[in-house]
């Protein structure tokens, strides 16, 4: 409850910050409308010309794009801006104040910046997922939908954990601004179903880099393609990832406390 209140306060503060500069606000709104139009155009091209890709039907591809966009919204509205702020706060020392606040530092670092402009992407991604699933003609049972939601959340958690680990590396390397560029590059690989890629890439993407977990897997669940065992494995993976990330974060903070001046 306290955390929800904190997030809503952060959101309010961020909306105020976004509205602070009028010209900037207008440009942002215009840009986002254009961006949305561009995305829709791109989708309609795929929609009109492609029927299958890597064995997946057009409806499934649309739904996959929806999940991909959902994750991307998380990247754009939370992960990117907070990385920027985090990297800056290490350099200018304002991280000290963050660490002295009586709230978990990982939470503060995650939510202190929220870019509100990408929020309608959330809507678009949900529309895409719903439309895609219906077009594919799949009958999504309530159980499938539930596992889909669970796996989407757990995919997001895996991705988030990876992010935490990457930014925590900054505590050791002091300057590691490319941290999230790496993450974005990995994420872009998740735009298409893993089977598009050669086997070795599939292995990397599925196992070494659990990005596939964040996009393809939830969709397989929605189609009812996943066995219960695999669903459980994926859920377990996200729990382990979150746990490992929090350990790395703690070690990073410890390291920061031990080394900074």
């Amino acid at each position: 409850m306290h955390f929800l209140k904190l997030i809503s306060t952060f959101l309010k503060v961020n909306i105020q910050m976004s509205l602070a500069y009028r010209a900037d606000t207008l440009v942002n709104i215009l840009l986002n409308i254009m961006w949305l139009g561009w995305e829709l155009l791109g989708l309609s091209i795929i929609f009109n010309n492609t029927t299958t890709l890597g064995g997946w039907g057009i409806g499934e591809l649309i739904a996959l794009l929806g999940v991909f966009r959902l994750i991307n919204t998380m990247m754009a509205s939370i992960i990117w801006p907070n990385t920027e702020k985090f990297n800056q706060s290490i350099r200018d020392g304002s991280l000290d104040y963050t660490l002295l606040q009586p709230a978990p530092s990982m939470f503060l670092v995650t939510f202190s910046r929220i870019t509100i402009w990408r929020m309608w992407d959330l809507l678009l991604s949900i529309v895409l997922i719903v439309a895609g699933v219906r077009m594919a003609g799949d009958v999504a049972t309530p159980l499938n939908i539930l596992t889909f939601l669970l796996l989407t959340v757990s995919g997001a958690i895996v991705l988030y954990s990876l992010w935490i680990v990457l930014i925590a590396f900054t505590f050791w390397f002091t300057k590691f601004d490319n941290n999230v560029t790496i993450l974005q590059a990995l994420l872009d690989a998740g735009r298409y179903p893993v089977s598009v890629y050669p086997a070795w890439v599939q292995i990397i993407v599925t196992y070494l880099v659990p990005i596939a977990v964040a996009t393809t897997v939830p969709l397989q669940a929605l189609r009812g393609d996943l066995s219960l065992g695999r669903v459980l494995i994926f859920l377990a993976v996200s729990v382990v990832a979150a746990w490992a990330a929090s350990l790395v974060w703690k070690a990073g903070i410890q390291r920061y406390s031990g080394a900074s001046s």
């Binding site: 209140k5 904190l6 306060t9 952060f10 309010k12 503060v13 105020q16 910050m17 602070a20 500069y21 200018d92 020392g93 304002s94 000290d96 104040y97 606040q101 009586p102 709230a103 503060l108």
Partner: peptide
């Protein structure tokens, strides 16, 4: 710390104060 900022640059201090109220 006199040489570091805790307040957000772009919004009035009153709003940063409210954030502190929530965190504390």
């Amino acid at each position: 710390m006199g040489q570091r900022n805790r307040l957000s640059w772009d919004i009035p201090a009153a709003d940063s104060f409210l954030l502190n109220q929530a965190i504390y």
